[in-house]
Design a protein around this nucleic acid. Structure first.
Length: 924
DNA sequence: ATGGATTACGAGTCTTTGCTCTGA
DNA sequence: TTCAGAGCTTTGACTCGTAATCCA
């Protein structure tokens, strides 16, 4: 029972969780659908954000490299943004609209109150409008004005002065692309190798940089990144996706979700107030100062480092998490500051970029008390100190070399530490940087290469680090940087798909850290459809070369197709069916690929990994109720122990336990396992009147499911119910009922069976623990089927009779109580009358009122012959004043049953005394 | 120094079929 | 005399996860 209650509460809580989650997803879907149907403004242009809070009509001809929608929390409705009544006509080329969903599951877990804290960076390359000539405008026309409000954060409130856009502002990725690279879009059956020059070019021209920027929208940041060729890893990765999509590739934005651990203590950070306290003189101030000094000694000062560390990171993710202080944003920035690089020729490069995050480290170290964090601080300081010389030796300018910031801030230049092997690179970081997620690959692109394999393949493309098809390296890189690969999600359209399997080679390490897969799948299900639909909207129109410019042929979603020119739209319709089947095939192939990976995970090298491994098992890690059957095949060995498929592990149960499931042991089967269980049985020696403890060995015989057959209980014969040795039937389920019997779950039904002399057995349905011991719980009886109707009929009659009897008893009790009440009143009145004139009036003080008003269902009869009771007629229901003074003294009313009458219509029972007094009782 | 194996321990789960006295 | 109900007293073996320790 206790467990049952627990499981019940768990079910309820999980139900609440699931409901909240579903609400969140539904909100997202509703917003998404609004976005897709809310008109040309949003489809063609930006997803309007708060920074566009102006009622002024603005005609903005701008090149919008990214359609980024940032939604912090599902409760922040996108509609609110559009309520700003912007009437801008935004002519833009949306190249990228990637989305990042973060922490939705964490929020659901941590906060069942549905304070969804999802951060959705929606970046959808498919929101480009096909028929919009703005592409050409924005790409080719430098003379158009660009409103600054599109580029600056609107949080400042007022409008900023319009400025002329520079040439860089209006430059586009495509216009930046060398002509020979533009031709890559015409290649059919694209392969990963064919992407190499493109990725190399991108890598040479766009760089990860952590600039201390004021808080602003992701879209604005992305535009700036395009303008300056620098940005955070997220921005650069998003730009790379934009580029791929602009070149007609099917691409999506992939991100490792930086989620909070399921276990509260795993990766919590101190609240800011605690940090502040410690900064102001906490017990760790000495040690952290030591680290601080060490760091100061080893790190050359940079002008940029003077910027406050509590500025929010460019990511919505990090900035949201850094609400409590700079600690988390520092982590995020640190993560950005170092990136893994591997050139396509096999050499790997680690890029270390000193940035503004450094100046946060001392504060951060002061605020954190964990041993690992302190170690990290010291390791970081030592590592930087130790590598500073090497860094200077190996330092080269970034490839473009024309960045003013770089020119003015030498320490912000890239430090490229060449490594021959990528693994050694990761290890270097792991050793030097300890317990922090630094330099981890967090964002990249996936490009669908139909020339790969026979059926096409999603190819990992990390343009930031110039890595192509390096999916197997992601896990190691992330692990080296202490980043968990729990969720790798690909975004396209307004949807998302979990592709963790593609990048996770050690699923057994990841699986326990993920949320319940059923819940996660249900959350992602609608997003998967959107993702699929978004990707499905990508149409390659290379089949019609020459009809449109290359820019017009850029990728168009179905929703945008509605707004395309009619002739163009008709082509889309024709092609949509072909495309649909292709997309479906591609999706199913990818699903198969991911499923195959799930089933073909390499054997772990340590034994403990087999403990709960979903695919493999070691015999030594089986529990006492498990066995290998069949014992083979042997898939390999781990430390000399044979590895078997997990499917060979069978759960064993006792005969009784199998009976509960409606199964019984086959006649010829012997137990596959016999356990010896030592039990101490207390047995009383009656003769000696002492207790003795006797150690006895009991055996537990266990059977496997292959030894079972359906339960065959003896059939009921001649109305006799087969019973067990306790004279009852254990009804664990319907399967446990003997054939020909039925379970009647009614209270007191055994009385009826007994009265009818029908054979029955008490139905035991379970146990509950009372007073430290198990007590069987009975519910109803088991009788032969042929007696069911008779018993039910008799039960109904019996219940009716019982109800009437109960009612009668209740009425009698009520009468008795009324009688007692009235008698006591009369007695008091008599006493009052008796002692009124003689002695003190004290006793009569409480009964001075001549009339005692009673508000009861009691009514005096209309035909009351006594004048002592009269009736207030204002309410039929009974407020009456009984003049008790006039009650006949010396007579006790007796209401005999034979004198009663009952008015069924009004439910009024009239009780009469022999003296003629009567009362009416309304039966409720 | 690191990672794997082993051990210890705590928390949670599963187990499971009165006896005696009192009062109606 | 019978029977229903209240009160009594509060398992213990096992599994699983985690941390500490040992060892190669």
């Amino acid at each position: 029972m206790r467990n049952r209650d627990k499981s019940k509460s768990q079910t309820q809580s999980s139900g609440t969780l699931a409901r909240k989650s579903q609400e969140g997803v539904n909100k997202f879907l509703r917003r998404s659908s609004r976005l897709s149907s809310s008109g040309k403004k949003e489809q063609d242009g930006f997803f309007l954000e708060n920074d566009l809070k102006t009622n002024d009509q603005e005609v903005v001809h701008t090149m919008d490299v990214c359609n980024a929608s940032t939604v912090e929390g599902c409760h922040r409705d996108a509609i609110e943004n559009s309520q700003a009544k912007e009437q801008e006509v935004v002519h833009s080329m949306d190249v990228c609209n990637a989305s990042t969903v973060e922490d939705c599951h964490r929020d659901a877990i941590e906060n069942s109150q549905a304070k969804e804290q999802e951060v959705v960076h929606s970046m959808d390359a498919h929101n480009a409008s096909p028929g919009d000539d703005c592409h050409k405008d924005t790409l080719l026309d430098d003379s158009e004005e660009m409103n600054d409000s599109d580029w600056e954060d609107g949080s400042t409130g007022g409008r900023k002065p319009v400025r002329r856009a520079s040439a860089e502002d209006k430059a586009s990725l495509l216009s930046l692309l060398p002509t020979h690279l533009l031709k890559i879009s015409e290649v059919s059956n694209i392969t990963a190798n064919a992407l190499t020059p493109l990725v190399t070019w991108f890598h040479d021209n766009f760089h990860v940089r952590n600039l201390a920027r004021a808080e602003r929208s992701f879209r604005t940041a992305l535009a700036t990144a395009l303008e300056t060729h620098e940005g955070t890893p997220e921005e650069i990765a998003a730009l790379s996706v934009a580029l791929f999509r602009a070149l007609k590739f099917t691409a999506r934005f992939v991100s490792i979700l930086d989620v909070t651990s399921l276990k509260p203590k795993a990766d919590t950070y101190e609240p800011s107030n605690q940090v502040a306290e410690r900064v102001s003189g906490g017990i760790f101030s000495t040690s952290t100062l030591m680290v601080d000094n060490l760091k100061r000694a080893s790190i050359a000062p940079s002008p940029v480092q003077t910027s406050p560390c509590n500025e929010k990171d460019d990511h919505g993710i990090s900035s949201r998490k850094s609400k409590g202080g700079c600690s988390t944003s520092n982590v995020a920035q640190s993560r950005d500051s170092t990136s893994f690089k591997e050139s396509t020729d096999g050499k790997s490069t680690c890029q270390v970029q000193p940035d503004t995050s450094r100046q946060c480290v001392p504060k951060n170290s002061q605020g954190l008390k964990r041993k690992g964090d302190l170690e990290f601080e010291m390791q970081l300081a030592m590592a930087i100190s130790a590598t500073s010389v090497e860094t200077h030796e190996n330092i080269h300018d970034s490839s473009d070399g024309n960045n003013s910031l770089e020119a003015s801030i030498p320490m912000k230049r890239w430090k490229r530490i060449e490594r021959v092997e990528s693994a050694s690179c990761f290890q270097g970081f792991s050793t030097a940087l300890g317990s922090r997620k630094v330099g981890s690959p967090l964002f990249w692109a996936e490009v669908y290469c139909d020339g790969e394999n026979l059926t096409g393949k999603w190819v990992h493309v990390d343009a930031v680090n110039a890595i192509i098809d390096g999916e197997q390296k992601v896990e190691d890189a992330a692990a080296a940087c202490k980043t968990s690969l729990r969720y790798v999600v690909a975004f396209a359209g307004h949807g998302a798909k979990d592709v963790t399997r593609r990048y996770c080679m050690k699923w057994y390490k990841i699986a326990p850290k993920r949320v319940n897969s059923t819940w996660w799948d249900s959350v992602l299900a609608p997003l998967r459809q959107l993702e699929s639909g978004g990707m499905g909207g990508t149409i390659k129109v290379s089949e019609h070369p020459g009809e449109n410019s290359s820019l017009d042929r850029v990728i168009l979603p179905e929703k945008s197709g509605q707004e395309a020119s009619k002739e163009y739209g008709s082509k889309i319709e024709v092609e949509s069916s072909v495309k649909g089947s292709f997309v479906a095939t591609r999706n199913s192939l990818e699903d198969m690929e991911l499923e195959t990976r799930a089933l073909t995970e390499p054997l772990p090298t340590n034994q403990q990994a087999y403990k709960n491994h979903a695919l493999y098992a070691l015999e030594r890690w089986l529990t006492k109720y498990q066995i290998l059957h069949p014992k083979g095949p042997i898939l390999g060995f781990c430390s000399g122990h044979p590895v078997y498929p997990r499917s060979c592990v069978q759960t064993l149960k006792t005969r009784e336990r199998w009976l509960r499931e409606g199964l019984q042991i086959k006649g010829t089967e012997t137990p596959v396992k016999v356990l010896e269980q030592s039990t101490k049985l207390k047995k009383a020696r009656v003769s000696e009147d002492v207790y003795d403890e006797i150690d006895s060995k009991e055996t537990i015989e266990l059977y496997g499911k292959w030894q079972l057959e359906p339960l065959l209980l003896p059939r009921a014969v001649n109305g006799i119910v087969p019973k067990n040795e306790r004279g009852q039937v254990d009804v664990w389920s319907e399967k446990c009922l003997p054939p020909g019997t039925v379970h009647i779950r009614l209270p007191r039904v055994f009385v009826v069976a007994k009265r009818l002399e029908i054979d029955y057995a008490p139905a035991m349905v379970g146990f509950e623990f009372r007073n430290g011991r198990a007590v069987p719980v009975y519910d109803g009886i088991v009788v032969c089927t042929e007696f069911k109707d008779a018993i039910l009929e008799a039960y109904a009659e019996e219940e009716e009779r019982r109800a009437a009897e109960e009612k009668k008893q209740t009425e009698a009790q009520a009468i008795s109580r009324w009688y007692q009440l009235l008698s006591s009143v009369i007695t008091r009145q008599k006493l009052n009358s008796y002692y009124r004139g003689s002695s003190s009036s004290q006793p009569s003080r409480n009964i001075q009122d001549k009339n005692i008003e009673t508000k009861t269902p009691v009514q005096s009869s209309k035909d009351n012959k006594q004048p002592t009771a009269h009736r207030k007629a204002n309410n039929q229901d009974t407020t009456h004043t009984t003049s008790l003074v006039a009650l006949e003294v010396g007579h006790e009313h007796v209401f005999l049953t034979k004198n009663e009458s009952f008015d069924a219509e009004n439910s009024i029972r009239t009780k009469r005394c022999e003296c003629g007094f009567s009362i009416q009782v309304e039966e409720l």
